[in-house]
Design a protein around this nucleic acid. Structure first.
Lengths: 153, 153
DNA sequence: TCACGACCTAAAGTGAACTCGAAGTCGGCG
DNA sequence: CGCCGACTTCGAGTTCACTTTAGGTCGTGA
């Protein structure tokens, strides 16, 4: 399949496919003239990438996960299934984190304190005293790239 | 308070405070020599910003929310409380979204299909046919800035 | 054969939320 | 009075996941 058809089927832009290829997430053959031709299997890889992103993985993590696929043969459904099984735990953790935040919020909403030191909304993980004040920990899917962890001070 | 002390108490870098000020999220007085001096109230604003970010709001949204604070007087605990009450709903939605994703995953994990068209993991909101295939919707806290919604095609 | 859309590369741009660095100034303690 | 750390501004850099643009090539239906 040419890049346009592949992208269309996967619901992505062609630029994304080129980008994924440059990042080593997918592979392609080339025609004589240098155009990409994708194997069917790539659709499954793209689906995996999409799904993994929904769960909050970065492309780095996704690449690492896919590196665990069998090298020689085309991956089977079972192979893909095994990979995605790990996501359940991850999702569970994310849900748990959000619920903790919500419950902390409930306990704060009445008082309006928003105290930096004592409010559970500020300090989800209890004290965190060693890491300095302020809430710094979020499930990784919630952490925003532009907001890197404070550098070691 | 000088910027260093304020930042220390809030658990943020001084650069963040300057940035927030440049973005109109906080305000300061200046000494004769041009240095910033912060009022106590700023600590509460910073706490609010931190908490709102934990819930997944952008600085734009946070600025908008804080614009609803009373202009003349110093905001009371009740004022802050009212603002943060809206977060509960938001968190509930986020949790619900993640749980739906997790349950979709459970139903997929056995089959390993990862089918672009039919897998619920790919298409959380059922068909979404109008918006094109692929899963495009995430709770905003999970959406990553670097990954903008596909432009209108 | 030729037109035209689909494709190619490489580099630069986007946006969020900051951080970092350079070059210079302030302020409070001794 | 002098020192030195804390402060100032401003512009550029960072991360992630792409998209956009410019300038050129491929491939296929008429």
């Amino acid at each position: 399949m040419a890049i346009g058809e592949t992208a269309g089927r996967a619901g992505m832009a062609t630029s994304a496919l080129r980008f994924y290829e440059s990042e080593g997430l997918i592979r392609s053959e080339r025609t004589e003239g240098g155009q990409r031709r994708y194997a069917r299997e790539v659709l499954r890889r793209l689906a995996f990438i999409r799904a993994a992103q929904n769960v909050g993985l970065t492309l780095d993590e996704i690449r690492a996960a896919m590196a665990a696929l069998p090298a020689g043969r085309t991956p089977t459904p079972a192979d893909w299934s095994r990979l995605s099984a790990a996501w359940r735990t991850r999702l569970d953790e994310q849900i748990e984190g959000l619920m903790a935040l919500r419950d902390g919020l409930s306990s704060c909403i009445g008082c309006g304190c928003l105290s930096l030191r004592t409010c559970r909304l500020m300090n989800p993980g209890d004290e965190l005293a060693a890491a300095g004040p302020g809430a710094n920990r979020l499930p990784s899917a919630l952490r925003r790239p532009g907001r890197p962890g404070r550098p070691a001070d």
